[in-house]
Design a protein around this nucleic acid. Structure first.
Lengths: 189, 189
DNA sequence: ACTGCTTTTTACCAAATGGTAAATGCTTTA
DNA sequence: TAAAGCATTTACCATTTGGTAAAAAGCAGT
């Protein structure tokens, strides 16, 4: 829980009273590997913050191929925030890649925090913008670099994740087949 | 100018007094093809809105290869907004791809608008978020699809741009060589 | 330890893409 | 109109990546 409050305080000030309000509304939930945090075609019910574990965003392209779009690990928000705020159906799945421990807020509680804490919306806007920028920055090299360079930047950007996540998902994230990925890893060794 | 105000009104309400204030601070400038709107290593001096023309974001990767990261055309904001707001040096170039006519605001005028119009920050936050989401959505297929599919989604996402932009820049945006791009266009014909 | 199941690696060949270089086409300028 | 300069295409071959299939490795449950 401390990690979560520290995370928030990076983006704005909160007094102890406000922090207690937030803590009071946070629920801890556990999701097992391969379970979904939210699903394409359904309205996201909650916004989460990862205390332990890794999740991924994924969708199926028009050829039916499963595409891993992004990984999120400890001490980061996990949410299809646009769809959550607007309460409209998501177009992507958010799936646990390992067993996860999450802090979550229901839409009702999230709104109550927003209506109670002055400046909360500003904080969350900053967080969303920050996450989007990080996403763009991390995914950009995946377009222009060759597969080996993509893998190297993945290792830099998500240190340790190689050992926690099925390689098939990483290959999908990097935009290559699992076979090519295996070959590349072999050449690097 | 009407286009600009209409664009803003998509994201929030503004009364005539506020609109007049904004109009009063907007300057029209012209940039010739290949000139820079802002440059890597320099602090962005202004935020712009494209009335006519096309610009691109570009950077040089660690191998010195020029990478076109994004195109922006008429009736869209063009700004390295994070660096502009914070007034820190940019890491990318913004270059006119065609002769351009822009509305621009200096940092001083932009701040004055923000300090005068209640709700302005909210509008600009929405716009920034919107642009970032669109960027992610447009660039995502570039990772996982093959070159032909990338080209097809480019045509959908930027209709008409193929005929206004040097093909070498499009190839770079798609993450392929100009030769491959030429070959792909030939096969489609 | 064995079985069955999933993940990862390997092998093979086909297809796509990159790199170098040259040819063609298009625009601008004298 | 010719010349020069840049953009685009083509050709050729090397390299990378994809697709299919099978082997090997890892893992869970008995």
């Amino acid at each position: 829980m401390k990690e979560f409050i520290d995370y928030l305080l990076q983006f704005g000030n909160l007094n102890t009273h406000q922090i207690d309000l937030i803590k009071g509304k946070a629920k801890v939930i556990y999701i097992q590997k391969d379970e979904y945090f939210s699903e394409a075609g359904k309205i996201p019910k909650q916004v989460g913050f990862i205390l332990e574990g890794v999740v991924r965003f994924l969708y199926y392209n028009n050829k039916g191929k499963e595409i891993t779009q992004y990984f999120i690990d400890e001490n980061n928000f996990v949410s299809d925030q646009q769809r959550f705020e607007a309460q409209v159906v998501a177009s992507e799945y958010i799936q646990a890649v390992t067993d996860c421990k999450l802090l979550v807020f229901s839409k009702k509680d999230w709104d109550e925090i927003g209506n109670t804490i002055v400046g909360w919306h500003h904080i969350t806007e900053l967080i969303v913008k920050n996450c989007l920028l990080k996403t763009i920055e991390r995914r950009s090299p995946l377009v222009s670099e060759d597969a080996t360079s993509r893998y190297n930047s993945f290792i830099e950007q998500f240190p340790g994740l190689v050992n926690r996540v099925p390689l098939s998902h990483i290959a999908s994230y990097l935009g290559i087949t699992q076979q090519s990925f295996s070959r590349i890893r072999k050449n690097i060794r």
